[in-house]
Design a protein around this nucleic acid. Sequence first.
DNA 1: CGTTCGATTGAGGAAGATCAATTAATGTGG
DNA 2: CCACATTAATTGATCTTCCTCAATCGAACG
Lengths: 234, 234
Amino acid sequence: MIEFAAAENTADTLKLLSDWLRPQRRLVRTGDVIYQSGQRFDNLYILNSGFFKIVNLSADGREQVVGLRFRGDWLGFDGIAGGHCACDAVAMDTGEVWIVPYDALLAACLKHPPLLQVLHAAMSREIANDRESLMSVCTLPADARVADFLRYWAESLAERGMRTDQITLRMTRAEIGNYLGMTLESVSRALSRLARDKVIGFAEKGRRDVQIPDVGALSAFVQRCLAPAPALLQ
Amino acid sequence: MIEFAAAENTADTLKLLSDWLRPQRRLVRTGDVIYQSGQRFDNLYILNSGFFKIVNLSADGREQVVGLRFRGDWLGFDGIAGGHCACDAVAMDTGEVWIVPYDALLAACLKHPPLLQVLHAAMSREIANDRESLMSVCTLPADARVADFLRYWAESLAERGMRTDQITLRMTRAEIGNYLGMTLESVSRALSRLARDKVIGFAEKGRRDVQIPDVGALSAFVQRCLAPAPALLQ
DNA sequence: CGTTCGATTGAGGAAGATCAATTAATGTGG
DNA sequence: CCACATTAATTGATCTTCCTCAATCGAACG
């Protein structure tokens, strides 16, 4: 049970951080801003619960969702180098955020080095995840990208011990499209096709709840999109 | 002189790292592999000179250039979380890489906390950079993406005190296209258009050397691509 | 109960991919 | 050093995917 082990791991790590850092806790609701681009960097944030998006804003006004974050993830690493936050972090649901002053964190890490390992692992995971995103956007056609997005979301939940057979997308089609580099219409069409192929299902009411009976079917769908020839008969 | 200050900064940081870590040095040549996906994670690498690419390989065989690295950058962060390298790092030119065992680095950081700040800043920069890449791929049309790629490369050189009026691309059109999420033909056409518009120039012989008389012109070109209407007259 | 916002679906068009031919650069063995 | 082979780059023609524009439908909310 890898999922279970990972969920245990997340909980253990959070306990360790809570015990050693005694962080200030902040309850957030949908739309609440954790930090904003340009703001001075002072704190890192540990997510105890909820769903969050990271939004990048370019100088010329382009807006781009560049990441999604869940329980156990950290926010704010982008600010360390420049002393200012480089993006916005916004809650997509009610949740709890732990606030950790960076200075205090460093002090705690020096006293208790295992904390340092936890911190570095979080940054490392973020780097590896971002690369997967880039890979997905660069190499997958639109339908596969949507499928891969659902797979990623479901697996993120699974790793944290949450149910994945029925998930609630906390983003509009426009936001998903922005994150995946396509239009909202393309997202909608892709989801319709996934539903037609029985890879996903929609709840009776509302199309924000997606049923994923089998996460593996999503991966299979991605592979099917990549297959060079349909190979009708041979 | 921001460029000069940054170049000074890179040099100072490298000196600090060299003095405190006494890293093993390795000379590399074009094509040399610094580390490979799946390999056990033991070391981080600091780039003293040269040009490097980070290549991600997916389970189903898709290959994607997910990053470019220069003097002063670090390699290997992706391996910290999982204990194994998550990508390949390959030299695109002759250069020198400093090898730092992660354990030794942590020990040194505990003895000399400023090192920790340097390490975290490097990881932070990497995170912020990756997001810029994703943003570029998701929001810019092909021509603008190529222009933005050249701008990024030129500015990376400028930050390190190298000349930017004439740069040598160490990648084939195919590699650039892979990195930018487009075909090699699209890269070639974009470069031809940039040359026709006098935003860049080509050397007499060989089209791997690109003349960039004015980096600002590249940014302007990107903006022109984004402009919704040409606004012929008003 | 109407208004508003989000989602779906269709039709047409445009950006970029694919396929193909040519040219330029690089490398190799005689 | 040259003829030849090989790889990279350019350019054109065609085709596919996805975007844009537009209409309709459904859900949520005051």
